[in-house]
Design a protein around this nucleic acid. Structure first.
Length: 792
DNA sequence: AGCACGCCGACT
DNA sequence: GTCGGCGTGCTC
């Protein structure tokens, strides 16, 4: 019996199967989709069994060392999906397999030195082994002992062993129970008697932490009882439950409005007939998309099938978790970046074991190992976070459609502001368009006011708040209503500049300006993490007039405090929400009315839904508009529409104030009238003229190298190859320097391909990738994104 | 990606 | 004459 294995080495030459002999003892367990540990050269590594066969042309087969799983971790569908993913995104097969599993299941590798013969070995080495045996590579390296050890290995006095460890860890809890033996306990041992009593009361078995809680006993007491044989200890697997502290109120179906009923009918038809169909559910905020999702899932569950619901960064919407857990109880697994590695692993195991039937999660939840999918839902379909930016560079929407084809089930893409690609496909009939035109309860859309900041400046207002905004803020505070202030991106544009010579402090390794961080009085690079203190004098002209410019959230907070010292503000940005759970804590505090103003970046644009918010202010609508990205207008429109949706979601009507320097720009004008269809028409015209998606597909090749000329040269070679091989209907742009020309001391050049129909492109790109991804002295690093969302 | 093997410069 | 630099090639 022979197994074909994909090993855990992401490299060009290793990107294929290797055959291994299956030892007799493992015949019963070894199957496709099981992880194994195999010898690979001198070391041992983890791998996935892709197939089992009887013969091979390879001589000198090595045997599989051990199996990691009893049950396959990837089923046939996911294994074949990984093949599709490899072809689609031009990634290594191992990366495609790895991305489908929680991070906890990635192997860890350790090297240990074992002492075989301690005669005639250096004193230094001997003492190391006395302190630690086996000796880890790390300590050996720390004591500069690797050289000596290498020599001892040659003399066969020391051996190096490679150990594959699972970073996955099943949480175990210690359980104690009463033994059957009748052992006398002295009347003085009050704690022991109490423990026995408690155990009898609860059926004879309790976890140690629970027992300690109940009886206030110490570990010592329990240990004594185990040693005496009164108690028997054992271990039990346990799930880490991130929601254990919370209860979810059971919620019932809402009665659907006619509008909603009209939308859900065709979806349920496809669910019932087991047919694939992609629906684009277009409905403004508050039009009741979530209830449609919930009732569709309900139908799917009745058929004993399963559902995947994707949301962008779910930790940001505890309210969404609430709604799902409330409706479906413990049938729901939750998967998002806010969970610890162990928690994610546990949620995954619940899915894998079939203990839950619904998963609500971020991008990677699209790979949930369900066997009978009944529906896949992608909420806020237009969100960029559905595209993974490193290998495998997949878009969750594409994976969803691919999986739905394999399972015969519908996909629902929901959004108030669909991506142009999706809306165009819906108009063409590739997707079925479902419109929700009315808000539930017939609420009015909030009134949106655009303030021209140039006008403010002309009239002598040089602050970052327009007079209108300040006035409205004051009004709400008087009425005890709440306000959300929105600012683009953390520390965006809060660069540091010398006022005398205009020098802007830049990262020495990347071509970006450093961002000022008040808390540490330092400047940080957002691309490589480089950090340094703000200099006392300008490195160029030695002037001392150094100050920071731009408006970070911290600065807004300060200004706000200067203008209205009595106003309570909660600031939400990366700095204040980095700690686990702090995000929710801040939001809850705001929900309880502990602050008047919620000030934040991107992260507050989604999901928050508090009845008392009646004013939303966007401090600078155009920061995003001027990014070097053809989707800049689309993103601005989506963001403004979404932010506006935060105001007046309940009885009180809301108002939105958008501050901008370009009020005439159509994405700002149309965000004001909240007219998606007009925006779509206008933006489509722009895209057509500029030859961008959805009229053209694009692919992006990025070359990076320490030497500028090398990077540019290779990129130009590649452009030439493309020009020669592709049809003349395709457009090849570049090579040009990447918008971020240097990251971590490597210069970046890129080349963009725009095409409509180029059946050979994938294989050509694969060829180029092979040709240039060799490892050598002057090797460049090459990256290909087949369908990029970030142009940087 | 690692790791070993192997072929040329600066030292005891 | 040896130690050690890192170029080259292989991993079932």
């Amino acid at each position: 019996m022979i197994a074909s294995v994909i090993v855990d080495v992401p490299a060009k030459q290793i990107d294929r199967t290797f055959d291994y002999l299956v030892p007799e003892s493992l015949h019963a367990v070894v199957r496709r989709g099981i992880r194994v540990v195999v010898p690979f050269g001198p070391r041992k590594i983890q791998g996935f069994i892709l197939s089992i066969k009887d013969e091979t042309t390879i001589k000198n087969l090595k045997p599989i060392e051990e199996v990691v799983d009893i049950e396959p971790v990837l089923n046939d569908e996911l294994l074949s999906l990984s093949e599709w993913l490899t072809e689609q995104t031009l990634c290594y097969r191992i990366s495609a397999l790895q991305v489908m599993l929680p991070a906890a299941m990635k192997a860890k590798y350790n090297k240990y030195f074992h002492l075989l013969d301690d005669h005639d070995i250096p004193v230094k080495i001997k003492s190391l082994f006395e302190k630690e045996s086996p000796l880890t590579w790390k300590t050996a390296d720390a004591h500069h002992a690797l050289k000596d050890l290498q020599e001892l290995i040659r003399q066969r006095k020391v051996e190096m062993r490679y150990v594959v460890k699972q970073s996955a860890n099943v949480k175990k809890v210690r359980i104690v129970e009463l033994s059957n033996e009748d052992i006398e306990v002295s009347g003085n041992a009050k704690k022991q008697l109490l423990i026995i009593e408690e155990l009898k009361k609860t059926g004879g078995k309790l976890s140690v932490p629970a027992l300690k809680e109940l009886t206030d006993a110490t570990s010592a007491v329990i240990k004594t009882m185990i040693d005496k044989g009164i108690l028997i200890e054992s271990y039990d697997e346990q799930y880490r439950d991130p929601f254990s502290q919370r209860t979810f109120d059971k919620t019932e179906h809402f009665k659907l409005t006619d509008d909603q009923q009209k939308a859900i009918t065709p979806i349920l038809e496809k669910v019932n007939s087991f047919e694939q169909q992609t629906f684009l559910l277009h409905g403004v905020t508050g039009s009741g998309k979530t209830e449609i999702y919930l009732q569709t899932i309900d139908q799917v569950l009745k058929q004993e099938r399963q559902a995947i619901m994707l949301v962008p960064e779910i930790s940001l919407t505890p309210q969404m978790v609430q709604r799902f857990k409330g409706r479906f109880g413990d049938q729901v697994a939750v998967m998002h970046s806010g969970l610890s590695v162990g928690e994610k692993y546990d949620e995954w195991r619940k899915i894998h074991r079939g203990e839950v039937n619904v998963v609500v999660g971020a991008r990677s939840a699209i790979f949930a190992p369900f066997k009978r999918l009944g529906v896949i839902i992608i909420d806020e379909e237009h969100e960029m976070s559905y595209k993974q930016e490193d290998s495998p560079r997949y878009h969750a929407r594409d994976v969803a459609i691919e999986r739905s084809n394999r399972h015969g089930c519908p996909v629902i893409l929901g959004s108030a502001t669909p991506s142009l690609e999706s809306f165009a496909r819906a108009k063409k009939g590739n997707y079925q368009l479902l419109e929700l035109e009315y808000r539930m309860n017939n609420q009015d859309m909030p009134e949106v006011k655009v303030v021209d900041m140039r006008e403010e400046l002309r009239e002598g207002n040089r602050s970052m708040f327009s007079r209108d905004l300040l006035e409205e803020i004051a009004k709400r505070i008087e009425k005890k209503e709440q306000i959300v202030l929105f600012l683009n991106r953390r520390g965006y544009s809060s660069f540091i500049m010398c006022r005398d010579c205009g020098t802007v402090m830049q990262c020495p390794h990347c071509e970006v300006s450093l961002t000022y961080h008040r808390s540490k009085e330092s400047m940080k690079c957002h691309y490589c993490g480089h950090e340094e203190y703000v200099p006392n004098e300008c490195p160029e002209c030695t002037s001392e007039h150094i100050r920071y410019f731009g408006t970070g959230t911290q600065k807004v907070e300060e200004e706000l405090f200067k203008l209205m010292p009595h106003v309570r503000t909660i600031r939400m940005d990366v700095d204040t929400t980095s700690k686990k759970g702090s995000h929710e804590k801040l939001l809850n505090a705001f929900g309880r009315g502990e602050a008047d103003i919620l000030l934040g970046t991107q992260m507050i644009a989604k999901g928050l839904d508090f009845p008392n918010i009646t004013l939303v202010g966007v401090l600078s609508a155009d920061t995003m508009l001027h990014l070097p990205d053809f989707r800049a207008s689309e993103k601005t429109f989506q963001l403004l529409t979404q932010v506006s949706g935060r105001a007046g979601r309940h009885e009180k009507t809301g108002e939105v104030i958008i501050q901008t320097y370009t009020p005439e720009h159509f994405s700002i004008e149309l965000a004001k009238s909240q007219h998606y269809e007009w925006f779509y028409q206008k933006e489509m015209m722009m895209r057509k003229t500029a030859q961008y998606p959805p009229f053209y597909y694009i692919s992006l090749i990025t070359i990076s190298h320490e030497n500028v000329n090398k990077a540019a040269g290779v990129c130009s070679e590649i452009a030439d190859i493309l020009k020669a091989k592709l049809t003349d209907q395709s457009i090849i742009l570049g090579p040009v320097a990447s918008p971020i020309a240097k990251i971590q001391d490597k210069y970046r050049y890129q080349c963009m391909i725009k095409y409509k129909n180029e059946p050979e492109l994938k294989s050509l790109l694969k060829k180029i990738l092979d040709q240039y991804s060799h490892t050598g002295k002057d090797a460049v690093s090459i990256n290909i994104d087949v369908q990029p969302y970030m142009m940087m």
